[in-house]
């Protein structure tokens, strides 16, 4: 780790000391910010380092969330067992579809992942064992730490995602991803097994995103297809990345916190026009971000 990466790492650790100072409101805002951070860091591995924009990455949020919830509800497994399984199922599904999916590039790839996300949402809404459109109720968490546990879970996940980003930034594994981002044909001509590395990168994104979905499901205790496969969450991840700077380890964190705080302030100030302002904000960010930033 470089000097400034270590600084961010310690800042993240220090965030763990904050909760005693926080009101319920700020605890919620920070928890949401950390969730968006973990999702943006996950997408950063794929978009920032590998060059593939998975616009529908929330598909894996839903898979992770629903798998976790169903394991708890139907099989009675404890959360601590269900959550990792949810993450792994999400990652394996990604690994399975990556080879055909990642033959597509740019906005074709982006829109295909979005179609997957919406299709899975519709599927879940139509099946019975997933609770259909009514969704699933989960028991409320009672245990050590109370609801603060979710703050810490998202913090842990963010730290994990951050370390993965640092690894990609600095390792030879990361070189393969960057080579694919820069020029895929050249990369494979230079000996990089592009299908393998693309798929692994995609699965890493899906793993973190799936885990994030699992924690979220237990946090809000009630999940339905609309909340778990929400396209608005997808776009928030991308806007956070654009805002902070794609392809850097600090950018996703910066963007996620800024966007979540901005969003909270707007929500508080103008509850009625929140959607209108959010839409405007997205448009403005895309317009104002100078052309190079999405690739450093």
């Amino acid at each position: 780790m470089g000097k400034y990466e270590r600084l961010i790492f310690f800042l993240l650790l220090a965030m763990g000391l904050l909760p005693p100072l926080l009101t319920d409101y700020w605890e919620r805002v920070l928890t949401l910010s950390l969730m968006l951070s973990s999702l943006s860091l996950a997408q950063n591995i794929l978009l920032g380092y590998t060059g593939y924009p998975a616009f529908g990455c929330v598909a894996f949020f839903g898979i992770g969330g629903y798998t976790t919830a169903l394991l708890m509800k139907d099989l009675g497994l404890p959360f601590w067992v269900s959550l990792p399984i949810g993450g792994v199922v999400s990652a394996l599904f990604a690994l399975l579809i990556a080879p055909p999916l990642m033959r597509l590039k740019s906005h074709y790839f982006a829109i295909t992942t979005l179609a997957l996300q919406l299709a899975l949402g519709e599927l879940v809404a139509n099946l019975e064992f997933t609770g259909g459109a009514q969704g699933i109720n989960l028991p409320i968490y009672v245990g050590p730490g109370g609801y603060l546990i979710f703050f810490y879970l998202f913090l842990l996940l963010t730290i994990f995602a951050f370390l993965l980003n640092v690894y990609v930034e600095r390792s030879t594994f990361g070189y393969a991803l960057k080579a694919i981002r820069e020029d895929e044909t050249a990369a494979e001509t230079m000996g990089v097994n592009t299908v393998l590395f693309k798929s692994v990168s995609f699965s890493m994104m899906a793993l973190i995103t799936g885990l994030s979905g699992g924690v979220y499901a237990y946090w809000i205790t009630y999940i339905d297809p609309t909340s778990m496969f929400d396209p608005l969450l997808s776009v928030k991840i991308f806007v956070a990345l654009l805002l902070g700077g794609v392809g850097t380890v600090a950018g996703p964190l910066l963007g996620a916190f800024t966007l979540e705080f901005l969003s909270e302030v707007l929500w508080g100030r103008f509850p009625k026009v929140h959607g209108v302002v959010l839409g405007l904000l997205i448009v403005l960010i895309v317009l104002i971000i100078p052309r190079g930033i999405w690739r450093r």
Binding site: K178, A179, E182, D183, T185, A186, A187, R295, R296
Partner: peptide
């Protein structure tokens, strides 16, 4: 023929 370098590296 048209160079395909990893431009940002």
């Amino acid at each position: 023929q048209i160079t395909r370098l990893f431009s940002n590296l």
